[in-house]
Write a protein that binds this DNA or RNA. Structure first.
Lengths: 220, 220
DNA sequence: GTCTATAGATGGATAGAC
DNA sequence: GTCTATCCATCTATAGAC
């Protein structure tokens, strides 16, 4: 065996490998969020990440696996934040948060992520895009991973015990639509329609608007 | 017409040509709605339509042009129905329809189309899918074709003259999110989450639910 | 371990026969 | 006008050099 170990450039063994994998991950997330899954090739990703073409398959196995890994990681992070906020609201309000508190816990993390000065802005666009463009594997995960939604549905039923459960589910569905519509293109269109008076930059103001609308809808 | 037992290969000049073009159109709309733009090849379309491979390029120029033609036709039809309902509501109410009337004019056509027994169900899925997966050309059309949305925004401002215009635009944005979330996959997920108690088959009931939620949100 | 070269598959589009 | 055969670009994935 050759033994040139002490003369290797940097300790490329672990750090460089992790850096390459992370570069691929970030480049892929960014390109997918901006252009869609099918419109981004492995060549685009490795060029953006400034790594060699084989890196995607070496580190992630395949393009699909790369996508799936990004998707799982980001959705897990987002839903963890939501669950934590819901838990805090329950602790503060004595185990029975109001409808507005529950909705705030659901809205705040994605809105924070999507704010212009947040480095997770691109991750939020990735998630929204993945919801509608993801492959069968990802859709199956979405369909089955309803545990975090169940927490919110149950909290809403506790906050409105007078409302039939069917109504709670439908209204939750409408609320989800409000969130999933927050794509770049939709904000852009709204900005154009309104003649430029709508500004999504003010996250706190947008959060208030969404809460006002959704809370009223839930109280109807 | 009166064409009982003439010969087999009849004047294929015009009728057969129109039939082929229509078959391509229908097959493409159906496959795109079910599987997404990038996941459907020209070969898939011509196989589904039972026509030869060159038909797409002969009748439509390119795959992209075919997509664009379907998109323009369907969105024009849908928005025409909406505009007609808004016009009728204005005529009935003496030129100043209520918020609920306006929202009903916006919600009813897509919900009718999407109902299980409607032959436009697949067209509605096509439109929703095209909104998020369409190419740059289609997104540019969406971005600029806000004329039909302006009608609704203006009607809402007339119905709520006390509300700042900025608020009207944001709430309209939320309402759009409610509609665009009505995809097969989302209904499916809701059905799964609710343990099967939500049923989107009853279109009138769903329309009522959406109107209750959106109207309350607009009145907040 | 990294990177190049290439295999292997599929796609859109089209020329040319009839 | 219809349809087949084919061109050529592009993609993912991988073998093999270093």
């Amino acid at each position: 065996m050759t033994d040139p170990l002490t003369q290797d450039p940097p300790e490329a063994t672990e750090e460089a490998q992790a850096a390459t994998k992370q570069a691929v991950f970030n480049a892929a997330e960014r390109l997918f969020a901006l252009h869609g899954f099918q419109n981004v090739s492995v060549r685009d990703i490795t060029a953006e990440a400034k790594v060699n073409l084989a890196s995607v398959n070496y580190h992630f196995g395949s393009k699909d696996s790369l996508l799936f890994e990004i998707f799982r990681k980001r959705t897990a992070e987002l839903n963890r934040e939501r669950a934590r906020m819901l838990h805090e609201a329950a602790a503060q309000d004595g185990a029975k948060p109001t409808v507005r508190d529950i909705l705030r816990a659901y809205f705040t993390p994605p809105l924070r992520w999507a704010s212009p000065d947040n480095d997770r802005r691109i991750s939020m666009q990735f998630i929204i895009r993945a919801r509608s463009e993801g492959n069968a594997e990802m859709r199956e995960v979405l369909r089955n991973d309803v545990s975090h939604l169940e927490r919110f549905a149950n909290a809403l039923m506790a906050a409105r015990p007078d409302l039939p459960k069917e109504d709670v589910y439908w209204r939750l569905h409408f609320v989800l639509g409000m969130i999933h519509n927050n794509r770049f293109a939709e904000f852009d269109r709204l900005h154009h329609l309104s003649g430029g008076i709508t500004r999504e930059q003010d996250v706190e103001r947008l959060l208030s608007r969404m809460l006002d609308f959704a809370e009223a809808g839930f109280m109807a």
